[in-house]
Amino acid sequence: MAKPIKTVSTVVSRVEDLGNETKRFTLTDQDGWELPPFKPGAHLDVHLQPGLVRTYSLCNEPEDNTRYVIAVKRERDGRGGSNFLHDRVRVGDSFGVSLPRGGIALNPDEMNVFVAGGIGVTPFISAIRHLERRRRTNYRLHWTSRGWPVLSDMISPAIEAGRVRLYDTAMQPKPAIAELVQEFAGSGFAACCGPEPMLRDFEGAVEGWPDERKHIEMFTPPKRVAQSDVPPYELVLRESKKVATVVPEVGLLGTLEALGIDVAVSCGGGICGACRTRWIEGPPIHRDRVLSPAERQSELIVCVGDCAGPKLVLDL
């Protein structure tokens, strides 16, 4: 039976221990061929093992098109993805990765204000390298970290030029985010990636801003109620010709997994986009933070999705 290749095959060409529980990995094609393109601040899924897929932001810039550089902070108590990368991955290992997705819609003319906490800086490193390469200086990065900020070597010219403000939260108080962004409320673009309290402060600070001028990048899904409250519905998988009933205790993703369907799942919480699937009949219930209204007309984030009617048909 023909088996479609769903990932780009890459080889780990460099592993650097940057300290502060962070490692940087460089992935390349086995012959150094160009890799599929990406936007500044995009991310991709690394298929570490069957059933172990994790999403990482690319730190390098689109013009640097023969490598994907990711930086991974160890989450000792997580589900094991970052521990696997830290403990098991060596130069020469090969991994499938998804096509890059997402990215930050930078404003070419106005000020772009980035607010990052710790490892949340990765998408902005890509954006800053992209802007610096084009000699654009219309951005500021406010970056909090505990102790020495790892990855600063990737944006040293920007730091030296004063376009990056570092806050060592071990020594100084956290900055007031509302004050950092308010100057640009009328025209600029603002984006934030960091721990949950930082995202909450940022969300409050840009509440009145139009959607196209703000961006929140989440690495960890928001906490959800454990179980959905929709009544059971029939699930039909058109490609694999399977049918099942989705009950709230198992959920849509659990049902797909029980049927042995190969859907990439990374965050499991509707923020990374790895499990994006085309739907044919519904209407589905969307609970993700990934798809645009137009994309929802034909796609569903199945890890948090459901069906509003008696039958959901997916292109799986």
Binding site: I5, V8, D29, D31, W33, E34, P37, N65, L99
Partner: peptide
């Protein structure tokens, strides 16, 4: 041509 799936054509 391109040597592998998804890689850009050269």
């Amino acid at each position: 041509k391109t040597p592998r799936a998804f890689l850009p054509m050269r």
